[in-house]
Amino acid sequence: MRILVTGTAGFIGFHVARRLLREGHEVTGIDGVTPYYDVMLKRARHARLREYAGFTCNEFMLEDAQALHDAFEQCRPEGVIHLAAQAGVRYGMENPGSYVSANLVGTYNVLEQARRCATPHLMIASTSSVYGANAVIPFAEDQRCDHPLSLYAATKKATEDLAHSYAHLWNLPITAFRFFTVYGPWGRPDMALFKFTANTLEGRPIDVYNNGDMERDFTYIDDIVEAIHRLATRPAPASGESDRGASPVAPYRVVNIGNGEPVSLMAFIQAIETALGRKCVCNYLPMQPGDVPRTWADCTALQDLTGFRPTTSVQAGVDAFVAWYRDYYGVPADA
């Protein structure tokens, strides 16, 4: 198949594109390669994808409507996986405009091209952050998401609403994934696992927010990719779907993709210590604006739709990340 993937120089987009290429699909990748974090890491991901004959690389921002139009014209995709976004919770207080531009304008442009080309199935990335101040756990797709706590969450919820309206008005099949704390090899340097590993190997303390009293539903990257792969063949029907997360008036659904098991931040740090063979020095800090104390995915809908449920343990996932980190940065095993 011909598949267009946005965010291919990013963490999740890279892994999704590589899985598709390994299966023989033609992938048109798009990424703005922004300097939000290490551009060299992003270019290294793209370099790995360029090793596959079926990969076409495009580097531009999704806000460039003409460039996106041209990419769709050249690809004529049979499926679109929209993973590009301005990520990060705390960065929204430093550069709020980047979220409005990338997440709202960029997603609108993708929706417009998918509508114009009558894309058979558009899949877009959302986040567990949309659950915001919800106190009922685990988080389920049919819960209301009216109280986002960060600009990132607010723009992601807005993209879900935009997508639903497009699905309804133009009968465009759309699936939105709500990702829960994705981690693994080739991960993002702004996330805890990367920072904790780097700091500990370099003998520096790690910042632990809310004095460590937090829980996250850590989800390994391979499980995320497998879930997306299976959902790709399960677009929502035109209307009247009864499963949770599906719209009653449009070919649209939202699906949680998480491990389904919250892990305390201190247990996560212990897994890092085990993988590194050394202790982390913790600098305890208060809760940061936009953060939530706990996330926990109800993955019943994912399992009902696909027969799949993520199962990778935190220790196995952290071990895999640390092995990649040592290899990528040339850190000896005894260092």
Rank of each mutant, 00 (worst) to 15 (best):
P205F: 09
D217A: 06
P185R: 13
M214V: 03
S150H: 06
Y220T: 11
R216N: 03
E215K: 07
A167F: 11
D213M: 03
D161M: 12
L201N: 09
S150P: 02
S165D: 15
T197K: 12
F179W: 14
R204L: 08
A163Y: 08
P148C: 10
F180P: 00
T219V: 00
D190P: 08
P173G: 13
L162N: 07
T219E: 06
Y220H: 00
E160W: 00
T197Q: 06
F194K: 05
T219P: 09
F180R: 14
P189C: 14
P205W: 10
P148Q: 02
V182C: 11
L149A: 03
Y166H: 12
G212Y: 04
L149Y: 03
H147R: 09
W170L: 07
W186E: 14
H147S: 12
D146L: 15
R216P: 10
M214D: 08
M214A: 01
I174C: 09
P205C: 01
A176T: 15
R204K: 14
T159V: 06
Y183Q: 09
L201K: 13
G187H: 11
T155S: 04
G184S: 13
N211W: 07
K195A: 01
F194C: 01
A153G: 02
H147V: 01
L151A: 09
H168N: 02
K195N: 05
N171E: 10
R178S: 11
A153L: 11
N210V: 02
A163H: 03
G203I: 02
F218Q: 05
K195W: 04
A154W: 02
I206M: 03
S165R: 11
R204V: 04
V182Y: 05
